[in-house]
Amino acid sequence: MTDIVFISVSLLTVGFAILALEARELVYGAVALSISFLGAAALFILLDSIFIAIFQVLVYVGSIAILIVFVIMLVRREKWISIKGGNERTLGIIAAVLLFSTMGYFSLSTSLTSQYPDPSALFNFTEIGSQLINEYSIILQLTGLALAVSIVGALTMAKFENR
């Protein structure tokens, strides 16, 4: 019953997320991470929220991935090749599988399995703007403040010299 488009998009998203963590070269990992973000944007389009998909592509693929690539270029290559994982790897796999199996098993017995959307209901994108201004204006201003503070902090840290 599941849509083939949904299956392929979700497999692409999760697979490239795994590849982003497991790729030997860190640059390939950054590229795989941006492809995983693109898959999440496709999921947003399937969820009928195109504005979030556009925002995701602009912010994640456009700025965060490029920022990560710049930082990878600033860090010398032999430093990140030499790091080898130890026992943490099996521990991480066990923790991830346990989390996935328990939460998946218990969520299968909830009412999430029988919830279907209303296909006639469409989002009005102008409501996002009016909600941002009318109801969440303080949160919007605090988000802008957090952005400004983080930019100032990042610049200050970048200027800091080793004395």
Partner: peptide, 14 residues
């Protein structure tokens, strides 16, 4: 767009 038939559990699993 807007013609989705998957139950919510699929997105939750992803």
């Amino acid at each position: 767009i807007g013609d989705l038939l998957e139950p919510l559990i699929n997105y939750f699993i992803v």
